[in-house]
């Protein structure tokens, strides 16, 4: 099933992702910012926080996260609200919320270009922006979009034209494994940490076993994205000494 050659418009193999680029600290008034691009899908993320006070109805014993999604064109509708809720819940699970209780951290996403796989790009961008702002995180999150074509083969990171022809696609977010000073005693009975799914949003109907294949492919690709993220964060952090706060 996976060995069929799929003819992708830009000549990529089914398992190949588009070129990734990440730059941080591009907005000097925001506490943290980043710009993440996967091919022509570009998302700009800005983080402001922690700011004092929570909204009414939120639990004041933990920090709260607020997400605002700005589309490239058009008004804010249900699709944007859905993205906001997904992002908010995903980012809540990676932040250490008890360190700054009764505060609000706002994350604003601006879509600069939309060429497929928009949600994973936004999640990666916001994760990099949170690191840039210095918000305490448990671990990083990497996101990938995996699609099932009509012929039954899986492709990674589809473009918009490919997305419209897909039978179904899934956006998956996996944790980036923490490299700790103390080596962990590996317990072979449980699955490794990186295999847990933080978020999974599917679109379109697909057979159950195809979904599990998507998970496998997604995990493998995410480990590559994790390495890229780690490299780009490490190289940048040695350069910037002062930040406007």
């Amino acid at each position: 099933m996976g060995t069929m050659e799929v003819d992708r418009g830009d000549g990529r193999t089914p398992n190949q992702m588009r070129p990734l680029a990440c730059s941080r600290n591009i907005l000097n008034r925001a506490h943290g910012s980043s710009r993440w691009s996967q091919g022509n899908t570009i998302v700009l993320a800005a983080v402001y926080g922690p700011k004092a006070g929570t909204r009414k109805g939120e639990n004041p014993e933990v920090a709260s996260i607020e997400v605002i999604w700005k589309p490239k064109t058009g008004q804010i509708g249900k699709q944007e609200k859905e993205y906001e809720i997904i992002l908010k819940r995903t980012l809540r699970s990676i932040c250490l919320l008890t360190i700054h209780p009764n505060t609000t951290t706002s994350i604003i996403l601006q879509v600069v270009g939309d060429d497929g796989a928009l949600l994973p790009c936004a999640i990666n961008a916001s994760c990099a922006a949170l690191v840039d702002a210095g918000i305490p995180l448990k671990h990083l999150a990497v996101a990938i979009c995996c699609g099932l074509t009509e012929t039954g083969s899986l492709i990674l990171d589809p473009t918009k034209i490919e997305e419209q022809k897909l039978q179904a696609f899934a956006c998956l977010v996996f944790p980036n494994s923490p490299i700790s000073v103390i080596p962990k005693v590996s317990s072979s009975a449980e699955e490794p940490f990186e295999h847990g799914i933080i978020t999974s949003v599917t679109h379109g109907a697909m057979p159950v076993h195809d979904y599990f294949n998507c998970l496998e492919r997604g995990r493998a690709a995410c480990s590559k994205i994790s390495e890229f993220l780690r490299r780009s964060l490490q190289s940048d952090s040695s350069n910037d000494t002062s930040k406007a706060r």
Binding site: K88, E191, H195, S200
Partner: peptide, 28 residues
């Protein structure tokens, strides 16, 4: 899931607990 056995949607948005494959299989 639908009546012909396909998975129409699997929606998990964040949350404290990470789901591994066996959990997903149980849910399905």
């Amino acid at each position: 899931v639908d009546s012909i056995g396909q998975l129409v949607s699997l929606y998990k948005a964040g949350g404290m607990v990470l789901a591994n494959t066996s959990t997903v299989k149980d849910c399905v």
